[in-house]
Structure formats: C-alpha cells, structure tokens
Write a protein that binds this DNA or RNA. Structure first.
Lengths: 165, 165
DNA sequence: GGCTTGATGCAACAGAGTTGCATCAAGATG
DNA sequence: CATCTTGATGCAACTCTGTTGCATCAAGCC
C-alpha cells in the first residue's frame, strides 16, 4: 500500500489525512507487530517532530474509526496495529514476556468460536481479545547463549520535547 | 473453602498465611469475578487496615506462586482472580466495557486450541489470555431504561491512607 | 477583514503500579 | 536475657502511560 492509498483510506474512514496521521499510518503498516505508543512516537519522530499528545489523539481517533486496533499486553502499555478497516479481520497476538514484542497472528476466528460465545454469554459481544504469552524464538536463543536479558534492543523512555514539538 | 483450608493452601504454596494475605485470599475467593487491585484493597480494608504497597506485593507473590492470576482488561488496571492452584485450569474472562466488571468464564481450553498454537508459533507458550469485550446484561438493561452511565456502583479512587495504614 | 473549525502543541495533571528505606514481630543463636 | 537475622508491612516518593485544559495556527467560509 503506498502513500496515496493510505490517504484515500483515511479519507474514506472520515479522517483528514494530515502529515502526522499519514506518518502514523505508515509506522503501523510497517510490520506485522502491534506497537506501543512509545515505539510509534519514536518512529514517527524519525520523520517529523510530533507531540505525544497528538499521537495519543491520533491513535484514539484511528481506533474509533476502525483504522487501528488497541490491545492490552502483559505490561502496562497498550499496543496498536492496523485495525479491521485495513486487515479485514480481528486477529490475536503473541506477546513475548521477555522482550515485550507483540506479533500479530492470523484471524481470531481460527482460535475462538465467537458465535458460540455470543450465545453462551448474556452479553452483547463487541470484540474478542486473544493473546498468547510466552518467550519468542529470539529471546529463547539469547537466553541459551548465556544472556539473561532477552532480545530487547529498543529502549529509551517516552517523554516529551525531542527538540520542539 | 473455609479459612483453615485457605491457610493450608497458602502454606502449601510456600506462602506464610498472614492475616492480610488470608484477607486477600478471601476477597479473591469471594466471587466469580476478576477484581482490580483497587477493589481488592477496598474490600480488604473493610476488614483491616492495609497499605496499598502491601497489597500489590501480596498480589505479585500470589501470581508468582500460582495462587492468583493476573489479567489485562480494556482499561489500565490489571484484574486478579484465583489462579491455577485453586481453580485448576486457566480460564478466559468477559469484560464489560461500560461498568468494567470482568466475569470469569469456563476454562480456556474450551475456547482455544493451545496445543495447536504451541506447534504453529515459534515460541515457548506460557499462557493464553482470552477476553470477551462487550456490554453485560445489567448495563444493557440500565441503558434501555434510559440511563447513560451503565450499571456501575463501586467508584472511589485507590489512594493511600484510609486512616493509618 | 473577521469568523469558525479542526489539528496540533504545551504544561500540568491523573491513575496504576514500583522502589527504597524504615519499622516491627517472630524465631534463631549466643 | 541480649542480640541477630529474616520476613512482612508501612510510608513517601517515584515511574510510566495516558489525559485534560487551554493556547495557537492554518484553512475555509462569510
């Protein structure tokens, strides 16, 4: 999907395709991982200055409009990835307890019988969150080679003012 | 399960059965819901004064020892319920987006094919988190009767010092 | 020009959970 | 008994993620 498609996609979702929003969309579309706001912020800032509040507002907007989906992990930060409007179907995630990376899995439907759930619960089901917790291959290898820290490599805290945003 | 059983259970798990820990266990065993630390704190304090740090430490300990399990929800607070050591099997949860209540469901095994997951992912699977998000029956009824707030009734912020803890 | 509207920035705040250090009680040891 | 250690708890201050309120700024409209 190129930039033009993305802009069209945003407009179709009723979202004005500003520069920052397009940059966020690019970051989200970049990998098959769900990213925490901090990572997204850092990546967008490689392109342009952005304020963290702006990012949070964009992410909220995207989630509301179905452009992104928000997922909880074992730690305290939500992860965001492209939502139903792009990916077509809801999907689960694999969360690595060591490095915190969260990979997107095939559609949830393969894992959970949502229809049966809706029937069995006295509840209006809006969504299903499926997360596999464990240790990813990279972290397992790192641990076997004697390291103790897992395969983390990102780091750096999400704070304000990377210059003047 | 009475108090004596609980004390024995804690000791068996290698946890000294202090008064506070027993109180926490009672609260967790009380319903078939997963509770946020704030609710647990409030309930324990109906019995005895406790500091929130103590509670968090007890919850961490319980999770490490398999006495409790920790689950993420749509909001930012983790929920805790009795863990594998008590309930025997991992289970999913139904989370109400309006009132924030999180009901425990039957065992996860009924919903997700964990074995297949372990095979298909290049990952050491430690656990599976399944959460159904939606609107519970109580909140649906409350909304139909014209209310807008859902069926919340708890409230009050989790802060320190309810007197001298 | 003057007005509104939506996107963004900035500062200050809020909630959940953590860390470091003090304290206190129960045993173990001399 | 005096002392020492150990584990559980309390308190204050902190971290991190995310929010809120208000200012600003550009684009479009009258």
């Amino acid at each position: 999907m190129d930039g033009k498609d993305m802009a069209a996609m945003l407009e179709e979702a009723g979202v004005e395709p500003t520069a920052v929003r397009l940059a966020v969309t690019h970051v989200l579309a970049d990998g098959e991982r769900a990213l925490p706001a901090g990572d997204i912020l850092r990546k967008v800032r490689e392109t342009m200055p952005v304020n963290k509040v702006t990012l949070y507002r964009i992410l909220d907007l995207f989630v509301r409009q179905g452009l992104a989906s928000r997922h909880s992990s074992g730690d305290r930060a939500f992860r965001y990835c492209l939502g139903p409007r792009f990916s077509g179907r809801a999907h689960g995630h694999a969360y690595c307890l060591r490095c915190g990376r969260m990979a997107c899995l095939p559609a949830t439907r393969d894992l959970v019988d949502v229809a049966a759930l809706g029937r069995s619960l006295d509840m209006d089901v809006v969504g299903v969150e499926v997360r596999i917790d464990g240790v990813c291959a990279a972290c397992r290898l790192a641990a076997e080679k004697g390291g103790t820290g897992g395969a983390v490599e990102d780091g750096a805290v999400v704070d304000d003012a990377p210059g003047k945003n």
